[in-house]
Protein backbone atom coordinates (compact mmCIF):
# COMPACT_ATOMS: atom_id res chain seq x y z
CA UNK A 1 0.00 0.00 0.00
CA UNK A 2 2.78 2.37 1.00
CA UNK A 3 4.67 1.51 -2.20
CA UNK A 4 1.54 2.16 -4.27
CA UNK A 5 1.10 5.61 -2.72
CA UNK A 6 4.73 6.38 -3.36
CA UNK A 7 4.38 5.34 -7.00
CA UNK A 8 1.33 7.58 -7.46
CA UNK A 9 3.21 10.50 -5.91
CA UNK A 10 6.33 9.96 -7.99
CA UNK A 11 4.34 9.69 -11.22
CA UNK A 12 2.39 12.85 -10.45
CA UNK A 13 5.58 14.71 -9.65
CA UNK A 14 7.25 13.43 -12.80
CA UNK A 15 4.34 14.62 -14.96
CA UNK A 16 4.46 18.05 -13.33
CA UNK A 17 8.21 18.33 -13.86
CA UNK A 18 7.77 17.17 -17.46
CA UNK A 19 5.43 20.14 -17.87
CA UNK A 20 8.01 22.61 -16.57
CA UNK A 21 10.38 21.77 -19.44
CA UNK A 22 8.52 24.06 -21.82
CA UNK A 23 7.86 26.80 -19.30
CA UNK A 24 9.35 30.25 -19.65
CA UNK A 25 12.23 30.71 -17.29
CA UNK A 26 11.69 32.12 -13.82
CA UNK A 27 11.38 35.90 -13.83
CA UNK A 28 11.42 36.17 -17.62
CA UNK A 29 9.77 39.54 -18.43
CA UNK A 30 8.85 38.21 -21.88
CA UNK A 31 6.74 35.28 -20.66
CA UNK A 32 3.12 35.12 -21.86
CA UNK A 33 1.87 35.51 -18.30
CA UNK A 34 3.50 38.94 -18.14
CA UNK A 35 2.51 40.09 -21.59
CA UNK A 36 -1.08 39.14 -22.29
CA UNK A 37 -3.49 40.40 -19.64
CA UNK A 38 -1.42 41.90 -16.86
CA UNK A 39 0.11 44.98 -18.61
CA UNK A 40 -3.27 46.66 -18.57
CA UNK A 41 -3.54 46.16 -14.82
CA UNK A 42 -0.14 47.80 -14.40
CA UNK A 43 -0.34 50.69 -16.83
CA UNK A 44 -4.00 51.62 -16.53
CA UNK A 45 -4.53 51.15 -12.81
CA UNK A 46 -4.26 54.84 -11.96
CA UNK A 47 -6.31 55.95 -14.92
CA UNK A 48 -9.12 53.41 -14.58
CA UNK A 49 -9.36 52.77 -10.86
CA UNK A 50 -7.41 55.65 -9.22
CA UNK A 51 -5.54 53.16 -7.05
CA UNK A 52 -1.74 53.08 -7.02
CA UNK A 53 -1.67 49.58 -5.55
CA UNK A 54 -2.29 47.22 -8.47
CA UNK A 55 -3.07 44.22 -6.31
CA UNK A 56 -5.84 46.23 -4.68
CA UNK A 57 -7.20 47.45 -7.96
CA UNK A 58 -7.33 43.95 -9.43
CA UNK A 59 -8.68 42.44 -6.24
CA UNK A 60 -11.41 44.96 -5.62
CA UNK A 61 -12.17 46.21 -9.10
CA UNK A 62 -11.15 44.19 -12.15
CA UNK A 63 -11.75 40.82 -10.53
CA UNK A 64 -13.94 41.91 -7.64
CA UNK A 65 -16.33 39.05 -8.27
CA UNK A 66 -13.63 36.56 -7.24
CA UNK A 67 -13.30 38.50 -4.03
CA UNK A 68 -17.03 38.22 -3.43
CA UNK A 69 -16.62 34.48 -3.95
CA UNK A 70 -13.77 34.54 -1.46
CA UNK A 71 -15.91 36.12 1.23
CA UNK A 72 -18.61 33.57 0.50
CA UNK A 73 -16.06 30.81 1.01
CA UNK A 74 -15.21 32.24 4.43
CA UNK A 75 -18.91 32.56 5.26
CA UNK A 76 -19.48 28.97 4.19
CA UNK A 77 -16.60 27.78 6.35
CA UNK A 78 -17.87 29.73 9.35
CA UNK A 79 -21.39 28.40 8.98
CA UNK A 80 -19.98 24.90 8.46
CA UNK A 81 -18.04 25.08 11.72
CA UNK A 82 -21.14 26.25 13.57
CA UNK A 83 -23.22 23.51 11.97
CA UNK A 84 -20.69 20.83 12.86
CA UNK A 85 -19.60 21.83 16.33
CA UNK A 86 -22.57 23.60 17.94
CA UNK A 87 -24.03 21.64 20.80
CA UNK A 88 -27.60 21.58 22.02
CA UNK A 89 -27.98 23.99 24.93
CA UNK A 90 -29.56 21.59 27.41
CA UNK A 91 -27.33 18.57 27.78
CA UNK A 92 -26.18 16.20 25.09
CA UNK A 93 -27.42 12.96 23.62
Amino acid sequence: MRILNLIVVVITGAILIYGTMDMPGWGNPGSPASLHVSPRYITKTLEETATPNMVTSVLADYRAYDTLGETVVIFTAGMACILLLRKRRNGHD
Binding site: A33, I42, T43, V55, D66
Partner: peptide, 18 residues
Protein backbone atom coordinates in the same frame (compact mmCIF):
# COMPACT_ATOMS: atom_id res chain seq x y z
CA UNK B 1 4.58 56.92 -18.38
CA UNK B 2 4.27 53.56 -16.65
CA UNK B 3 6.33 50.69 -18.03
CA UNK B 4 4.67 47.30 -17.58
CA UNK B 5 8.07 45.63 -17.30
CA UNK B 6 9.10 47.64 -14.26
CA UNK B 7 6.44 46.15 -12.00
CA UNK B 8 5.86 42.47 -11.29
CA UNK B 9 2.64 40.84 -12.46
CA UNK B 10 -0.12 41.54 -9.91
CA UNK B 11 -2.64 38.98 -11.17
CA UNK B 12 -1.13 35.80 -9.62
CA UNK B 13 -0.94 37.60 -6.29
CA UNK B 14 -4.60 38.45 -6.45
CA UNK B 15 -5.52 34.92 -7.40
CA UNK B 16 -3.50 33.60 -4.52
CA UNK B 17 -5.13 35.94 -2.03
CA UNK B 18 -8.35 34.17 -2.97
Amino acid sequence: VIQASSYINPLPHVLMLT
